[in-house]
Design a protein around this nucleic acid. Sequence first.
DNA 1: AGGGTCATGTAACGCGTTACATGATTAC
DNA 2: GTAATCATGTAACGCGTTACATGACCCT
Lengths: 175, 175
Amino acid sequence: MSGYDLVRFFDGSTGWIWAAPQSQIYPMLRRMEQAGLIAGDEEARGPRLTRTVYSVTEKGHAELASWLGVAHDAAPPRDPFMVQALNFDMIPAAEAVAVLDAFIAEQDKAAAEAEAHRDRLLRKDTALLKERLSRRDPEEHDRIARLKAHVFDGIAAVARAKAEWAREGQRLLES
Amino acid sequence: MSGYDLVRFFDGSTGWIWAAPQSQIYPMLRRMEQAGLIAGDEEARGPRLTRTVYSVTEKGHAELASWLGVAHDAAPPRDPFMVQALNFDMIPAAEAVAVLDAFIAEQDKAAAEAEAHRDRLLRKDTALLKERLSRRDPEEHDRIARLKAHVFDGIAAVARAKAEWAREGQRLLES
DNA sequence: AGGGTCATGTAACGCGTTACATGATTAC
DNA sequence: GTAATCATGTAACGCGTTACATGACCCT
């Protein structure tokens, strides 16, 4: 992909799992190229405009595989919403209920989107999955699609659990 | 609290919701004091050693209450573990299962800790809750304790859901 | 001619992490 | 006396966010 492709990529469905602003992409691509993890290939797009398409090198692939294969420490938690919820007793109940309303809407939306994406993956109907499958034995295709779909199933399940938790919280606030 | 108190505070049970390294505490305290949100009070602790105990000013309290009362946009997601899970098809299944084993242990531990903390809150048995309740009408005590306990109930429920999701993932990997 | 998309950058500023650094006081 | 705890800082470096900035190409 080119830097521009990545900018759009992180604004799209991948944005639910990992976000990156445009200003980080280009410097990071150069740093990764210097580290030998990716290699850039300049393409002409008209007489003056060029775009640089990067691909993962063997070294980059090896580093990725070794990172994928071992468990990493969880990042320190930093959850502003939980700080809010822990202090709902400091504000009027009606305000807390409204904050939870917004939270519930957000979680329900996230769950629906994750479920929709899960279904697209099971239908093998996303560009990235097709690209991935094209390099794999057809016998593995179903298993790979189910594995990836399962990730979005988990995201949806967590969002549903959070929404349900928030609804219980509203009941507590109103009692 | 003093800076030192806060360092220990963020290493303790609050560390599940918000973490902050020692190096951030002191600069941030000074910035918040400059902003008028907190006020420091120097105490002598021996002939030479002093500690500065900060308390929240009226302005700081007002800012907190107004922040607590409105919904905020969720932070952009950035979940390295999900990136790992999404690419389990790139590594041997046995490695992926081992990564999930570590994840399950982590989530189970987090859930157990959250449940234990929930129970302490219901028993009104934490220093912070006692401090909070001492400034409130005794009639409200049960409601406040239940509200705070509910937050940790939610943390536990999410951790349990994630662990269950990971176990399903292991079944998928082994099939 | 104009707007939309393609394509790539820079600058400022604060947050977060790891590591280094120092000295006082208390308890045994 | 000496080890643990109390107490407070600094430095280096990269990540993340918002905002600013520029120009080429394509379609109507």
